[in-house]
Computed example of a mutant assay.
Amino acid sequence: MTGFVNKLALATSIALGMTAIGSTSAFAGTLTNPQFGGTVDTDVLLYCSNGSSTFAGPTCTDSLSTILSGNSSSPGGNIELAASSEQAGFDFTKNTTLTGTIGGKDIVISSLTQSDWMTVLGNGKTLLSQWLDDAFLANNVNIPAILKPVVEVAFTNLNGRQRFSDPNISYVNQNDTTGEISIGLAGHFNVSNLLKDALIPNNPFLATYIPASLQASELVKVVYDNGPAKYLYSFAATASGQINGHGVGADGISHNGNYEVKLAGVPPVVTSVPEPSTMLALMAVGGLFATAKRKSAKNA
């Protein structure tokens, strides 16, 4: 009897250990069932990645799920929303969205329209005014307050809003423990020249205020779980290890920076499934009980 008890204790310990291991395994949730929407659902450009270069066009045949499978360490490809935003004749009243579910909740990721930029935030500022303030503060750009209206007019007239309204989505991931959602935005590691192009041609005196190195992501509008719209952006990039090297629209410099924006999400309910080894251990325990029962019946 003692031998049986010892075997039972060992088998039970192994089974519980295996169960614990199986139940604690976790993974980062990703966007499922991705698809396009918005008022112009075809205004998109898909970029695949070979690890060192992103590329669009006929040779980019990856699925949306594959393109969006990256993370902050390895962003991979990306999907550009409102891809024609910087072209002549672009209708800035329309948007393109990437929709899907993450952790069982709906999420809508959208390009921006001109009305989005004029949205009045809780502090009374428009999104345009707030974003410029944040961009200059984060990059130590000391433009005098008296010139702020001039900057906003120049940025608007030179299509600066359009330049930063077509986000390139690299990934949409969720932390299964905290529920936090991370969205990768492919962009320029240094946007100094882009900002100058959107300010200086008609106002050369502003050039002295723009530093040689400046970081800013494009903006993205996010609606999560049918909640209020949030405008997300970042002023801190990490090197992506790749560039837009060939294919449609290749320029040799885009996508060399990864900007990550985050929003709070609801932790998904994770149902633990015992691993095969756990099942084998539980079967062993069951076998020992069956053996004990037979011996008990035989000795009766």
Rank of each mutant, 00 (worst) to 15 (best):
N140D: 15
T126L: 00
G76S: 05
L232I: 15
N50L: 00
E180P: 05
L64I: 07
V220Y: 07
E152P: 10
I169C: 04
F189A: 13
Y224L: 05
T12G: 07
T119A: 09
A207P: 14
K230V: 06
T113E: 09
P167H: 03
V261T: 00
Q162L: 04
L232R: 13
L112Q: 14
N33I: 03
I146K: 15
V248Q: 15
T278L: 00
V222D: 13
N157C: 10
E86D: 09
T32W: 01
L132T: 11
A9Y: 12
A250K: 13
G265C: 02
I107D: 06
T99L: 14
S217P: 00
F164P: 14
S13M: 10
M283I: 04
L127A: 08
D176N: 01
L263K: 14
I21A: 06
I169S: 09
P228Y: 08
T119D: 09
N244H: 14
I79E: 06
Y233S: 01
N71E: 00
V191H: 00
S234A: 05
G17D: 00
E260A: 13
I109R: 11
M18T: 10
G124Y: 09
F136Q: 08
D225L: 04
F289N: 08
S111R: 07
T126A: 01
M18E: 03
L64G: 04
V150R: 14
N142A: 14
